[in-house]
Every structure is written in C-alpha cells, then in structure tokens.
C-alpha cells in the first residue's frame, strides 16, 4: 500500500441500503443499479466505520485493534482492496 492512500476518505452513497438480514451477515443494495454486495461480519464492520465517516487509515487502525490475530500487512491490503471494490461498484464515493 502506498502511504498516502491511508488518508483516503470515502463517503457512502446515500442511496445505498444496508440490510442486516440475519445473524450470518448483511448485504448492500444499490437501488439505482440493482447491484447487491454480500457482506460478512468484517465487511459489515468496515461499512459501519464508513457510515461513521472514518477514513481508510482510521478503519485500518480500528480493524487491527478489533482483529488482533490478523497480520497487519494483510489488514491494510484487504481493507484497501475492499474499499476500492465498493467504490468501483458505486456503494462508496471517494471524497477529498
């Protein structure tokens, strides 16, 4: 990961719906595109961080604390690609 990328801010697309369907997880639904993204519990945790307007760096820090057993490099890499994927699918919007 490039150091500068850590400060990327993402805003959730206000049209996107979060459905916490059952104990197994949740899904995101974009009614404009009909796209659905299934979230596991980690994905749901990250989405809720985004709802609280946390930037990428803060989300990574938060996850490292929450999931201590996961290697730090792996957390950074996976959070970055997860957020990029959500942005590409229109669930998140990158903001300055």
């Amino acid at each position: 990961m490039i150091a500068g990328e850590r400060s990327i801010n993402y805003q959730i697309n206000p049209d996107v719906v979060l459905r916490e369907e059952d104990a197994d997880g949740a899904l995101l639904f974009n009614p404009d595109t009909n796209d659905v993204k299934v979230l596991n519990n980690t994905g749901l945790y990250i989405w809720k961080c985004c709802q609280q307007k946390q930037n990428q760096e803060k989300i990574i820090l938060s996850l490292k604390q929450e999931f201590e057993q996961v290697p730090k490099d792996q957390v950074e890499q996976e959070v970055g690609s997860f957020l990029q994927g959500l942005e590409l699918a229109g669930f998140l919007v990158k903001s300055e």
Partner: peptide, 15 residues
Amino acid sequence: MKSSQGYSFKNTPKS
C-alpha cells in the same frame, strides 16, 4: 434466528 428447512427467515421483509 428462525429458519425452516433451507429457507432463511430475514429480519425484515425484502419485498
């Protein structure tokens, strides 16, 4: 959460 033989009951209606 309630379920019945393969059908997963959702917390809220989907449709």
